[in-house]
Write a protein that binds this DNA or RNA. Structure first.
Lengths: 199, 199
DNA sequence: CGGCCTGGTTATCGCTTGTTAACCTCCAAT
DNA sequence: ATTGGAGGTTAACAAGCGATAACCAGGCCG
């Protein structure tokens, strides 16, 4: 049997977790297979029992995260759909803030080392990201009346805002979450102000 | 004479510019000296006529940018000081937006590859950055009444928002500038809402 | 008991990388 | 005219990298 995909979790995931930390600090190319082994308490080569190569490790990491981000984002926004357009946007913001605060390393790696991915994985991740952004675009348009391009650029800007978490991190977590949430919502509502007056 | 610092500009700066582009795409460790040479139309080793080593190139680049960011930020905020606290904040936002839109690659590299710097340069850059942030913190506190930690985290968040530019870039430049400006100001005013009611 | 996955080990290979050395070629100024 | 520096060349090197091979220990299953 070829190197399969299944072993449901735990060793593989453990490696991904410590790798995320290292990649976030020094970048994909800045971390050697030897470093990874050392951080796991094993020796470099052991990694190849779990991943075909270094690139595949990054692939599993980034596909995993973009998958989760999208799935949960979709779930939460659908759950809030009954409560109106504003509630959907709040749900998305809440989820993204929560995720960014819980996994700063993953956030960092995701759009620092996307370019180091193999073509296939990169394509997959990009697709998930596009779909995730699309959710946001729809929610923003519905809640604020912004036009499509405003909404798209606004969404990216707010990702940048929320993802800034790894670079500051002074406040307590709950305070930080509240701050980011507040700022993100205010920024989004301001995004629309170009075309329509606030609907 | 040891490898001096002076040649006022042009070849050295030219190298820094194309290096910034490459580093932004693939990261510091993802770009080889050979790649750099090729992008300059010369051959790898030629680089050592201008920089002591690869790290020194990155150093010159990041020290240069943090220098400029701080100097101009200081200048503009002082120029606006007469027109009130709000004008100072607007000036800082305006400058940062302008810079981010003009030099997306530099922005990307600055806080993607800071960790790859030698200790000395890293220290220098960090100091400039801290001073720059301090300007923002003061301006935010004066304009919104936020407390210190809120202002600091808020500043970082807004940097993230504005620096998101390289990742979206669909709108026309002037529209994008207006959008980012609007969003940034709204986010900053929302940052205060934790402690004081809006002053 | 015997077998065989699973997750390790060490040794080794070949390629790439950063860096240096030695040499060449224009200008510009003495 | 010559000299010297600035900027470039090719060749070579040592180190580090990703990857592979061959081998080994233990726990679970028949």
């Amino acid at each position: 049997m070829p190197i399969a995909e299944e072993p449901p979790r735990s060793r593989r995931q453990q490696i991904i977790d410590v790798a995320a930390e290292l990649f976030a600090e020094r970048g994909f190319h800045g971390v050697s297979i030897y470093d990874l082994g050392a951080a796991m308490g094993t020796s470099g080569a052991a990694l190849y029992k779990h991943f075909a190569n270094k690139e595949a490790l990054l692939g599993a990491m980034l596909v995993g995260i973009s998958d989760r981000l999208l799935a949960e984002g979709r779930g939460r926004s659908e759950a809030a759909a009954g409560e109106g357009a504003d509630a959907v946007l709040e749900a998305l913001v809440g989820w993204h803030v929560e995720f960014a605060l819980s996994h700063p390393a993953l956030i960092t790696v995701q759009f620092r080392d996307l370019a180091s991915l193999g073509e296939k994985d990169r394509h997959t991740v990009r697709q998930r990201q596009r779909e995730y952004v699309e959710r946001w675009v729809e929610a923003i348009r519905a809640a604020t009346g912004a036009d499509e391009e405003q909404a798209r650029s606004g969404a990216h800007a707010v990702f940048g805002l929320i993802n800034s978490t790894p670079h500051s991190a002074r406040l307590e977590r709950s305070e930080m979450a509240a701050l980011l949430h507040r700022m993100a919502m205010a920024a989004l509502r301001a995004a629309a102000a170009g075309a329509q007056p606030p609907a």
